[in-house]
Write a protein that binds this DNA or RNA. Sequence first.
DNA 1: CTTGGGTCCTGTGCGC
DNA 2: TGCGCACAGGACCCAA
Length: 288
Amino acid sequence: MPELPEVETVRRGLAPVMEGRRILGARNNRPDLRFPFPEKFAERLTGTVIDHLERRAKYLLAHLSSGETLLMHLGMSGRFTIEAPNEAARDMAAFVYAPGGNPKHDHAVFDMEGGARVIFNDPRRFGFMALFATNAMADQSFLSGLGPEPLGNEFSPAHLDAALAGKKSPIKMALLDQRIVAGLGNIYVCEALWRAGISPRRMASSIPGKRSARLVPHIRDVLSEAIEAGGTTLRDFAATDGALGYFQHSFAVYGRENEICRADASHGPVQRIVQSGRSTFFCPSCQR
DNA sequence: CTTGGGTCCTGTGCGC
DNA sequence: TGCGCACAGGACCCAA
């Protein structure tokens, strides 16, 4: 699920039941996800207060009163669900993703002060968690190499120009590189390139200048709109209580192979190609 | 140094 | 209905 807008949607959903609240109990139900769970996971989390729940790129960062920070990544299939014991907690949970994953993939559980139970479910186990001293956050390899937040001030055409200079890889791959800009994934790269009228195959070094001036605002827009829509939900179905994101209905190209271009029905259909083993969708007429 | 491919893992949907 | 294969929102690791 998770690119920046989905992770941000999850953060907003979790914040009301986690932020400012004590973790009354925590446990992991298996020793590892993509990486082993942190040593003494339960002991280090139980009893501490989540002072602040932050998002950086596709990471969630829970800053704890213990002086540690819990870093969480959803991988490809990770999701959080909230089990709420009462009406008030259910209301707070209204934003959260896709309840009802197979319980055998419930890998971590947090029982929160206030009564909510937060469950991390991840069938593919590409997700992971890490726990480290907050004041050593800058040393974390997960975070230290990340490029700027695409919705922050640091992400500008000038930044993109510098980051893409001399890059021989296709712009599609460069935008997926979290060191260049942090938070884009396969969907939003495809959508942003379509909006900007740039071919995903174009060499990254040909973007600086007018094209990056066009691309930057489109990246911001598509991400902002997706956050506004509650992110994208694919293949995940749940009670239609408004909890699921609906940005997928706004896709211009992603998953639309052979369908007509939304910009101009007279264009050839949307094409799917494979770049570095991943699907790219684009309109060859719009995108040059 | 950059770049591309393989890899981790389970689930789903499709064609036969 | 069953079976096998392709594919899935990420990103690390390593060879070239």
